Simulated assay, not measured.
Amino acid sequence: MAGPMAHSRARRNPADGRAPVRRAGATVGTVFLLIGALGFLPGITSDYGDLRLAGHQSGAELFGVFQVSVLHNLLHLGFGVAGLALSRTVRLARAYLVGGGAVYLVLWLYGLAVDERSAANVIPVNAADDALHLGLGLGMLALALLAGRDGDRR
């Protein structure tokens, strides 16, 4: 029969004691880092030779679907770094998910409003990006709400 000491010597799971909203923020940040990096890889990004700094003229598409540019990829990388940095506390992780969700909903609206072939399409975005931005915005807001229910642990 194992006593209380046996449990204290067990290997600890790094996620134990970490608030769900912090794990959610860190996970979202990690995914953005991965997507930002993949946007610079030929083969994963189709028409890589058409990758431009910014603007709708960039013909590169991540996974052959999502229009990207160097600026777009750098924004993903920056958003990922922010997610990891802000997931150090419950308050900041929640702010990252709520703020990021709001940003992606604004990007969705931007994508609906801007002509894909206009100079105003600087990020650039296409219809697939628009749908993804809507999903990301709603998903991040849902994570902030649902994962944040576990109290305000550090």
Rank of each mutant, 00 (worst) to 15 (best):
I35M: 08
V90Y: 06
V68M: 07
A15N: 13
P124I: 05
T45G: 07
G139D: 13
A19N: 15
G39D: 02
L146I: 10
T27I: 03
V68S: 07
H72N: 15
L84F: 11
L38Y: 14
E116G: 06
L53A: 13
F40D: 06
L51W: 01
I44Q: 13
L53T: 04
E116D: 12
L132I: 01
A142E: 08
A37W: 05
R18E: 12
V90I: 00
R91Q: 06
G49Y: 11
A128M: 11
P42D: 08
L112S: 04
R94K: 15
V31C: 09
L74C: 09
L143P: 02
L33T: 10
N121L: 02
L92D: 08
A6M: 13
R11E: 11
R18W: 04
Q57Y: 02
A85I: 00
N121W: 01
L62E: 02
L132W: 04
M1A: 14
G148R: 10
R149K: 12
V81H: 08
A131W: 05
E61K: 12
L34M: 08
A2N: 12
V81F: 13
L33P: 10
S58R: 03
Y48Q: 01
A93D: 07
L75Q: 09
A54Q: 05
G55W: 00
G99M: 11
A82L: 13
L51Y: 01
V21P: 03
P124M: 13
W108I: 00
R52M: 04
G55K: 01
L105R: 09
G83K: 15
R117N: 14
A2W: 02
D16H: 13
L77F: 10
G25L: 04
S58Y: 00
D130Y: 07
H56L: 01
G78T: 06
V31A: 15
V31W: 05
M1S: 10
T30V: 01
L33V: 11
L146W: 13
L33E: 15
T45K: 01
I44E: 14
A82M: 11
S87E: 04
A93Q: 07
G49N: 12
D130T: 00
